[in-house]
Amino acid sequence: MAKWGMVIDLDKCTACQACVVACQAENNVPISNPETAKAGRSIHWLEMIPFVDDEYPHVRMRLLPRPCMHCENPPCIKVCPVGATQISSEGIVGQINARCIGCRYCTTACPYTVKYFNWFKPEWPKGMERYLNPDVTVRYNGVVEKCTFCHHRLQKARDLAQYEHRELGPDDYIPACVQTCPAEAMYFGDLGNPKSTVSILSQSKRAFLLMEDLGTHPKVIYLSEGV
């Protein structure tokens, strides 16, 4: 059984935000506007987060691409009263939009703030709906949405492998963000397989997890900058 996980090498990352836009294009994320942004209600399944530390002139700025951590022990699923957010046997934390009642307990429970509530009916001006991805359902207002590790791609890849009578290969399934990353700083694969690239990288001495002390066991692993 695969345990899907991601490694992000911050030493290679250039904070260009290609992953951010690739994710929005792939997953039919509602587009923002000045009012939505001002209210803090823009939706970014994957967001570039700045951390500014220390004082001038020794100030440091760290820039972290933050998708859903797909925790092995996700706080969000424990608070959902209707079982709308669940972890799959392969470790992907998913959101069943049709079951969501919009209580937003999970958006509060998630320490990484990766869950987004649809405050508005998603709308695309006439003509713009043409670019919507036919593989991904558009969400409606009143439900929560989140990063799915592009699991529709997993379904497609698995169908294709089955059709071609072969096992799912290591490169058959990668999320849109990893595919586009210009610096080749993002890796994706099976953390359960000790020989996979992500497993090997996760053993690096540069590896760290976000808010590890909370016991969430994230499956997104960062590699720190520097030697």
Binding site: A18, V21, A22, A25, R130, Y131, P134, A176, P182
Partner: peptide, 27 residues
């Protein structure tokens, strides 16, 4: 309809990768 843009893996400039602006070509 065009529904996604990604890098051309054979192209020597970007080898399958693409930046935010490239992704945004749909808009």
């Amino acid at each position: 309809r065009a529904v996604k843009i990604d890098g051309n893996p054979l192209h020597p400039i970007n080898r399958g990768r693409l930046c935010a602006r490239g992704q945004s070509g749909l808009q």
